[in-house]
Structure formats: C-alpha cells, structure tokens
Design a protein around this nucleic acid. Structure first.
Lengths: 121, 121
DNA sequence: CAGAATCCCTCTTGATACTG
DNA sequence: CAGTATCAAGAGGGATTCTG
C-alpha cells in the first residue's frame, strides 16, 4: 500500500493533473485576472493579452469544472456571461499571485543569470 | 524600451516566459524535489515519477539557465553530477510547495466539483 | 553515470471562419 | 456578445541508441 496522502511525485496521483490545470499558461493568467474582479468573456480576452478565444474558453471550462471559477449566464440579447472566482478559487489565487509577483521581482536576476550562462558557453 | 513595471498580462513581457519555465509540468516537480535535498540526475529521474531523461534534462537546463538551479560536476569516473537550488531557487521553491500543498489538500473538493459539473450535463 | 542525438508520433496551439 | 468548428503547424514527449 502506498502513502495515503496525495503525492504529486507519483505518476498516478491526480493532484498532478489538478495542478497542471491551475498552472497552465492561460489558466494562471485568467485566475489572476479574476482575482482583481469578475470579468466577462471579452474583458478577460482583452486583459489576458495574446490569448485566443479557443484557449481562453478551454481554460475557463477546465477551471469551472475543477471548481475554481464560477460561470454565470444571463440569457439576455446579446448574451451576458460573467466569470468570477469561487471561494476555493479565491483561496488559490493569492498563492498564484505570490508566485507571479516573486518571478516579476526577480526578472532582472533571471536575465542576468541567463547572460552569465550564455556567455560561459 | 518597454514598460517599467513587469506585467505578466502583457504579451510582450518576458516575465511570462520566466513564469512558464518554473511552472512547467516537470520543472515544478524538479524544483520541489530539490527543495528537499540536492539530487543527482538519476535520483531526480526516479523521484519525479514518469519523467523521461529528455524532458528532465531539458527542464534542468532551463532552470539552470534562469538561475534557479545550480549544476555541479565532478569529473570522476563514472561522472557525478549534483543539482541543488541556488539561493534564488531556495526562495522560489516554498512558494511552489505552498501551491502544491494547497491543491493536494483540496483534491477531494476538486473531484466533487467535477462530479457535480459532469452530472449537470 | 549523465547525458546528447535521433526518430517519430501525438497532442496542443493558434488563425480563421461560422453560429445562436 | 460569447462562444464553437475546423484545420494547419509546431511543440511536447517517448523510445532507442550512442558517447565521455
């Protein structure tokens, strides 16, 4: 029997999949944007610069399915759809923001490291 | 010259690339493993269950280039190569661990959300 | 042991166009 | 407005072989 606790290091552990869903390129940015405020689809698309409609839609569906994001539809004409973080998502987002903030702050060092590394070879 | 503040939401911002490097499927796990202790290549390969030599090698090279991981070679026979976190990496890793731990803890809720979502359609 | 190099295939990605 | 459908291109990833 293996350990009872979830273990990302194990190939079979589903936490790996769940983790990939939230750390995905576009998911990460969508969650961060939603941390600021609820957004409509088009707003999100503009906020997350460079994302295609397809990938945004796909990412949002996955995030909704995993319970991080709530999707609210108002059946008006034209349609109005709003995305917001669920309570779980609201707990998750700050951890992502911490990560993003840290990497942004360290960006100069990252570039310096790359220059050093590239120069050495 | 680009914007003064790093902004992941901007398509052009290089922080996005740096972020993808550390949140990549295998990079994330490699950094987590190295947080526990320095590892040799083969140890890392066994610890990160499911990774191929190719992808592990590739991930480690990227992490080394960005300055999160240090690679130390001892020119013995057989060769001995040890990977460890740099000081920057040691600051980064806990943030990743926090994320992983959170998602692992929430795994039951994630599955429950999926079941609810799938049942509704 | 620690990788580099190669081949090969699948899955993701991203324009573009179309729909309710 | 908020997506879905389609298709071409490229990256991701596995298996195998080779080298210092």
């Amino acid at each position: 029997m293996e350990s009872l606790a979830a273990d990302v290091f194990s190939r079979a552990c589903t936490s790996r999949e769940a983790l990939e869903h939230v750390t995905g390129k576009w998911s990460l940015l969508a969650l961060s944007a939603l941390q600021e405020a609820p957004h409509r689809f088009g707003e999100l698309r503009r906020r997350v610069d460079g994302v295609s409609e397809k990938m945004l839609s796909q990412s949002l569906q996955t995030l909704e399915r995993d319970g991080w994001v709530h999707r609210e539809v108002r059946s008006t004409i034209p349609p109005h759809v709003e995305y917001r973080l669920t309570p779980a998502g609201a707990e998750l987002a700050p951890k992502l923001l911490a990560l993003i903030g840290f990497v942004e702050d360290r960006l100069p060092q990252v570039h310096a490291a790359r220059d050093r590394h590239d120069a050495a070879h």
